[in-house]
Design a protein around this nucleic acid. Structure first.
Length: 238
DNA sequence: CAATCTACCTGCGTTACTTCA
DNA sequence: TCTGAAGTAACGCAGGTAGAT
């Protein structure tokens, strides 16, 4: 995370030359920049189009820096939409890289630098934040999709393993009864939910099928996630 | 100190315009 | 030339916050 300058002067040190009233140079070709691409007309907000006089008038009136506010979409003519020049976009992107929100001073300074209205800079940052968030959401979505896929695979594998282990259960059990040395059917084992010790029961409840040897295992040395199998619970209070 | 008002900012959803395939 | 999709500038509204009264 970069530390950002807060003063407008230092913020604007990344100065560029914005074409004032001069005609923008012809764009190379497509593949440059984001959505634009192609041989865009590259209308400069500060530039009067050479089309018709009426259009030019409208353009200048709606984009002039000194203009107080846009005409209302209801009463006035339909709003004209500017296309930012490459340089304007580049500087805005540069600024956005440093910080995603601007304080009023920075906004004002940046607007001055770009010969835009502060409101336009504000709107650009607003839309840029939205795009950024959208992109992030899309990336997260992709990641979750992939994760879901791998979990599904893992689930399949585990289901298969469970099936195999269930099939093995019919084989000879390896847990011995405490009193006799006869093997105890795995289906008669149950695990204490408190200390995760396994006890032998007479019921038909389904216990864990792990086949560890019976021992008086030290609790502290084992991970609580790994249940220890006992044929008889060491604690009578359990 | 709490309540209310006002101004400002930001996020969000939407609209309108532009460009391109 | 027409058309639909994509990108994006601009709009309007709601909610939050800080300062003033």
């Amino acid at each position: 995370m970069a530390v950002l300058p807060t003063s407008s002067s230092s913020f604007l040190e990344l100065t560029i030359s914005v074409p004032g009233s001069s005609v923008s140079p012809p764009l190379p070709t497509s593949a440059e920049g984001g959505g634009g691409g192609g041989v865009m007309r590259d209308l400069d907000i500060n530039q009067v189009p050479s089309g018709g006089a009426e259009e030019a008038l409208e353009w200048t009136t709606t984009t002039s820096l000194e203009e107080d506010d846009d005409q209302s979409p209801n009463g006035g003519p339909p709003r004209k939409k500017l296309r930012l020049t490459k340089e304007q976009s580049r500087l805005l992107e540069e600024s956005f890289k440093h910080q995603h929100t601007l304080n009023p001073k920075q906004k004002e300074a940046l607007a001055m630098e770009l010969k835009l209205k502060p409101r336009q800079v504000e709107v650009w940052f607003q839309n840029r934040r939205a795009r950024s968030k959208l992109k992030q959401t899309e990336m997260e979505c992709e990641y979750l999709k992939r994760w879901f896929g791998s979990l599904t695979e893992q689930n399949k594998r585990l289901q298969k393993e469970v099936k195999e282990l269930r099939a093995m259960k019919v084989g000879p059990p390896s847990v011995m009864t405490p009193h006799s040395c006869e093997p105890l059917p795995a289906s008669t084992l149950s695990m204490c939910p408190r200390c995760e010790h396994v006890t032998a029961t007479t019921g038909l409840n389904k216990g864990p099928t792990r086949t560890t040897t019976t021992s008086t295992t030290n609790h502290a040395t084992l991970s609580p996630k790994v249940p220890t199998l006992h044929t008889r619970h060491p604690s009578a209070a359990c």
